[in-house]
Design a protein around this nucleic acid. Structure first.
Length: 196
DNA sequence: CCCTGATTCGC
DNA sequence: GCGAATCAGG
């Protein structure tokens, strides 16, 4: 792909809106975020705000016999800012599932294991509280939508349609988001002597 | 690990 | 001019 006027235009637009290079690249297609960033720089609209931003050159792998920059290059900044309208979303995207049975009591159907689910353990109350909060923000993904980096904490009952996975960003490595990691992996210390 | 932008430099 | 590779930070 090449930088056609249209593509450059979209690039400028999106960059101006504060979209990330990767998002722009994805939108444009056929280019990587590096390409986008490179183009952004070439277009001279790197700095989204303004500023010198050129304190010191980074000398990395070896000294660059790079001469100084004798060019008093003047950056044309016709950037009056002002970004009133949010611009319509291109992608309606996600599930419109705000509904939550008000009378959602604890139905414990014929389900069997329900692996994680913080039962009556003595998990730090705050951790549980955190989970409750987070579940409100949960992406509520279904099985298909889970990826390697979406929290796989199940919520609700698999037998019901009121079942989903947290879906928030996982905490590095772990299969759950921060909040759920908190209740999922406990230091054995708190669950030790549960002899019965 | 994921992501971000910034820079360099061979093409 | 282009953008992969690399850096640097979060």
């Amino acid at each position: 792909m090449s930088w056609t006027d249209e593509r450059v235009e979209l690039l400028k637009k999106m960059w101006g809106e504060g979209q990330s290079a990767s998002q722009i690249a994805k939108e444009l297609g056929g280019v990587t975020r590096n390409a986008v960033i490179g183009k952004v720089h070439r277009l001279g609209l790197s700095n989204r705000s303004s500023g010198p931003a050129k304190p010191e050159p980074k000398a990395k792998t070896a000294a660059k016999p790079e001469a100084a920059k004798p060019k008093p290059k003047v950056e044309a900044k016709p950037k009056p800012a002002a970004k009133p309208e949010p611009v319509a979303e291109e992608k309606p995207a996600e599930a419109p599932k705000p509904v939550m049975s008000p009378a959602r009591a604890k139905i414990i159907p014929a389900g069997q294991p329900l692996p994680p689910q913080p039962s009556a353990n003595e998990i730090p109350a705050e951790a549980l509280a955190k989970v409750s909060e987070v579940e409100k923000k949960a992406k509520k993904l279904n099985l298909m939508e889970l990826t390697e980096r979406t929290c796989k904490w199940p919520v609700g009952d698999p037998a019901t349609d009121d079942f989903w996975f947290c879906g928030l960003p996982v905490q590095q490595g772990k299969p759950y988001c921060e909040a759920h990691v908190g209740v999922a992996f406990q230091p054995m210390s708190s669950r030790r002597d549960r002899k019965r």
